[in-house]
Structures are given as C-alpha cells and as structure tokens.
Design a protein around this nucleic acid. Structure first.
Lengths: 218, 218
DNA sequence: CCTCCGGTCAACCAAAAGGTTGATCGTCGC
DNA sequence: GCGACGATCAACCTTTTGGTTGACCGGAGG
C-alpha cells in the first residue's frame, strides 16, 4: 500500500516543522509538499498534479497571514477544475468558534482538528480524511452536538447590522441617524441583541459578537 | 563550548515538535525539556536544577490552555527563589499587540518573538537570550520604536490594562473591583484614554484601540 | 383568517457612563 | 528640592444607556 501523501499549509514555519516531524514518524504518511499560504497551496497542488504525484490530503491552518483564509482556500481547492477529484481538506486550527467550524464544514472541509490535539489524534484524522471519511476533534464534535440540541437564538440581519455600527463606537443617536430609524427603535433592537447574546451592555455585546464571529474585526 | 540548554513551554504538541525539530538542527542548542503549561514549566525548571542540569533559556508561548499565561509564568520564573540566577525567558507568540509586548517586557521577558518568524531568527533570539541580551522580533522592535518616537497617543501600561478589561465588556464598577481601585479612578483613567485616543465613549475607544493594535482582538 | 414575528415607535424610570474640578501621593529626572 | 507625571480618590452634574411596557404595521405560515 502506498503512503498517504500530505500537503502542509501553514504560515508558521514552526508549525510546519512540527507537523512534518510528527507525520514523518508515522508509517504510511509522507509529506509531499508544504505551503505558507493559500495561494502557494493551490500552486503546489497543481504542480504536484502535473508531476503525476497527486496529494491525498491537504492539512491546512484556518488563519493565515495573507488575505486568503483557510475557508476560502478550501473552497478554491474543492472547486479546482483541473484534476477531477479534489483532495480532502483537513482544517487544523487553534480556535474552535462555532462560526469557524460551520464555515469550514460548509466550504467542504473533511475535518476540523485543534492544534493542541495529541499526535495520535492527528494521525487518525489524516487517515480518516484519506479514506474519504470525516474527522472531527472530540471537542469540535461535542460543540456541534450541543449546537443542535441547544440552538442559540439567531440574530436577525437587521440586528447584525446594528451590531456592526455599534462596534464602530457610534452612540444610539448616531446609529439611529445612520439607519434612518428613531432612537427608540435602536434601543429596542439593542435590548433584543443583549437578550440573545446573554449580555447587558453594548461593550459586552461587541465582545461576544466578535468572539462568535458574528461580526468581524480588522 | 557547551550547548545551550532550552526549556520548551507550549500547550500545543505540534508547536513543541516543531520547535524541537527546528532547534535540534542548530549547532550549540539542545532541548533540555518540554512543558505543556506554566505549572509544568516551573516543575521542570526545579527538577533540572536539582539534577545539576540547569536550563539556559526558557522558550515560552504567551497564551496557554490552562489558567496561567506566559506573563504570569514569566513573573514566577523570575521571582523563583531556589536557583540564584533565573534563566532568561523568551516569549514566542502569534500576536504582536502593544498590550502583550508591554506585559511580557514588564514581567521580565528577555525577548519577544513571533511564531511566523523564520528559523534563523529564532536561533538568533535563543543565542542572544542565552548570552544575557535582549532579542526582539523586527516587527516588535519597530512597534516599540514607534511608541517612543510618537509620544502622541502614548497610553500608559495601566491605561492599556484598563482598555483590555473594557474590551471584555465589563462596566466601570467591575473594572474597579478587578483592579482593586475605586470607580472614580476608573472614570479618571477612562477620561484620559478617551482624550488620547480622540474618542468620547467606551465602544469607540475599543474600536480605535483594536485597530491600532494597542489591544488584541480575541 | 388569524397568529406569530420582525421592525417600527413612544413614554417613563433607573442605572451607568461621561465631564469637570480639585486634591493627595510617589517616583523620576534635572 | 522642584516640577512633571502617573495613579489614586471625591463630589457634582449632565447625558447616555438600559429595562419595561405597550402599541402598530406587514408579511409568512398554519
């Protein structure tokens, strides 16, 4: 049986070295190539395909230095026309926010592992992904289950819109003016938002919304 | 000449493996031990010291899974009574916010490196630290220089500390309790912060501070 | 058809935050 | 020793927020 050929994608040399060292210790797994960002990953994929040495599994970080993040890269890999069967993508990240997990899964990732996972767990995940199965870290699986059992109240798009203006530091009056509604309505919306996020003031709402990636922050 | 003995502290097995592989490739550097968190690091330090094999440099992540973070651990190491000369502590982290850098430096860290640094830079930093010098990543150094040159928005470290609590959504009273100061003092500090950042409310302060990377987004 | 829900608005009250002035204390540098 | 500055606190007042209640409209769905 041929070894599973893995493509490592991470912008941290340290992490790449760790993954390389870790995977090399396992039987049946070899590191075919490495890339520091999404663009390089796509290039490496194409290059290896042209050489007749296709990659079996892509092991990729979710947050990368340059513009393209793991989710976008996953989408591109999955949509990649050239070779018929795009390789399974395994996401390896530090955080396990709901939004990240959902986004990764929706983009077509075959798995979602955390960087603090023990080597054996990572090995299993690579093996699973190579055989076409899905691999989720226990913590991630538990989180998804909890989400299904206990769905969080979803914010309406209007509320998210409010939240974004809120995060820029605007006061209620300014938000009202911006959205062409009355200050009273702004207060009503904010009250609903606080309730849904489980907080009781605007700064906490921003904090929670940012952590859950309901709104983005640059 | 004896090799420099390094203690690796990071809660991610992957990162530890990477650092180990990376440092092992260098002449004159050996990994004496590894620890997954601050507590284990202190224990390892004591154990190695008892064995007569003191570590020359501690290479530690700033954010660790358990309670104790890198800054706290650094402080404990520096204060560690047992062996007379505490080893230099080199902080290795993903982010380069003012808040993190200042906290690390104040805690007595000998250096501050970013995880996306090339191997050679890390090697240089370990060497510098071992010889008692300070090693800052270029990005970090530039940031500190800018801070000195631009006295315009020079927030004191106390103010940055306030800002961080502010960003978690705490109210003035809660912040006061957290810092063991009165609510009046919190208001005074906030007033100064608003003035320096050119804003007039807490949410705007968080927004500006985040964009200027005075504090880190979580 | 009628109910549920999102979005809109109002009035009112309580609490929190913001603005101002002024004061004490320590440390640092000149 | 003096002056500057950061950190601390207090009292006072104004503005902003948060919390509650109640109401109207319009669309989606049973």
């Amino acid at each position: 049986m041929n070894a599973i050929r893995v493509l490592l994608v991470d912008d941290h040399p340290v992490v790449r070295a760790g993954l390389r060292a870790m995977l090399s210790d396992f039987e049946g797994i070899t590191v075919a190539a490495e890339a520091a960002d999404g663009g390089a990953a796509l290039a490496a994929l194409a290059r290896l395909h042209a050489l007749g040495e296709p990659v079996d599994v892509v092991l990729m970080d979710l947050q990368m230095g340059d513009g393209m993040d793991g989710v976008t890269a996953t989408g591109k890999i999955k949509a990649g026309a050239a070779g018929q069967p795009p390789p399974p993508v395994l996401i390896l990240t530090t955080y396990d926010s709901d939004a990240d997990i959902l986004a990764a899964v929706e983009a077509g990732a075959s798995g979602y592992m955390l960087k603090d996972a023990p080597p054996e767990q990572i090995r299993q995940a690579v093996l699973s992904a190579a055989s076409g199965q899905t691999a989720l870290a226990p913590e991630v699986a538990a989180r998804l289950m909890g989400r299904i059992r206990n769905p969080e109240p979803a914010l309406s798009s209007r509320e998210i819109q409010l939240l974004e203006l809120l995060a820029t530091g605007l006061g209620n009056r300014a938000i009202a003016k911006q959205l062409f509604i009355s200050e009273a309505t702004v207060k009503t919306h904010l009250g609903h938002i606080y309730g849904k996020l489980g907080v009781d003031n605007r700064t906490a709402a921003i904090s929670v919304a940012t952590q859950r990636r309901i709104i983005r922050r640059l």
